[in-house]
Amino acid sequence: MLTTVGQVADRAMELGIVAVVGPAEDDLRERPWSYYGRDIAGALIDMMEEWGAGVRVHPKVDGLLEGYRDLFGRFAASSGGAVTITDVELLDTADGERIRMLVNGDELVWHLEHQCDRYIDTLMVFEIADRLAPRDDTDPRVFVEVNDSDDQSGYIFADPAALSILIRELGIEPA
C-alpha cells in the first residue's frame, strides 16, 4: 500500500508517469500521503502538477485570453515537449465566441461559452483535452481527466493504462 509521498513518487516513476521527482521533493519523501490533503484525487493532481506531469484547471481568471494562454501553456509544459500549443487567441465570429490555437502546428478552433469574462469555459477544456495529444502516434500518453472531491478538474499527462494502475492502487474512483 502506498502511504508516503516517496512511495507514490517511486511508483509514478516506475510506471513511467513522471520521469524524475526533483530534489525539492526529497524532504517530503517520508511525509504521509495525507500531507497533500485528505482528498486523494486532489492530492494526486497537486502532486503531478508539482512534478511536471499534471495541470489543475483554475476556472477563475483575471482575463480570458491570458487565462487560456496560461492554461494551455501549462498543458504543453506538462507534456515535456510531446505536445506543442501556440498562438492561442479568442475570436468573436458571427457564430459566437471561438478559441483558436495551434496544437502540434495544426489549427484547432473550438466554440466557447462564457458566462462572464472572469471564468474560462471548462467544458471546452474537457471537450478538447483528448485532442491535445502527441504528434508521435507511437506515444500512448494523453491528458487523462481526474476530478477531486469538489468536482474540480485536473489532467495528468500519462499512458492511461499506467495511470489507471496508480489510480487503482491509491483507491481513487476513476473519472
Rank of each mutant, 00 (worst) to 15 (best):
G63A: 14
L64A: 03
L64Y: 05
L64K: 03
L65S: 13
L65N: 12
L65M: 12
L65T: 13
G67Y: 06
R69M: 05
R69I: 02
D70P: 00
D70I: 00
L71G: 03
L71Q: 04
F72P: 00
F72T: 01
G73R: 09
R74S: 12
R74W: 07
A76T: 00
A77E: 14
A77N: 12
S78Y: 04
S78A: 15
S78P: 11
G80Y: 00
G80I: 00
G81F: 11
A82F: 02
A82T: 05
V83N: 00
V83Y: 00
T84I: 05
T84P: 08
T84G: 07
T86P: 02
T86C: 03
T86G: 03
T86S: 12
D87Y: 01
V88K: 02
L90G: 09
L91M: 03
D92G: 10
A94P: 00
A94S: 08
D95G: 06
G96N: 12
G96V: 07
G96K: 08
G96I: 08
E97G: 04
R98H: 07
R98Q: 13
R98A: 02
R98C: 03
I99R: 00
I99M: 10
R100T: 10
M101Q: 07
L102H: 10
L102E: 13
L102N: 12
L102D: 09
V103E: 02
N104F: 05
G105I: 10
G105P: 09
D106T: 09
D106G: 11
D106N: 13
E107L: 15
L108G: 08
W110I: 03
W110A: 14
W110F: 14
H114Y: 15
H114W: 15
H114L: 15
Q115E: 14
Q115R: 14
D117P: 04
D117T: 08
R118G: 08
R118P: 01
R118N: 12
Y119H: 15
Y119K: 12
Y119I: 04
I120E: 02
D121C: 10
T122A: 06
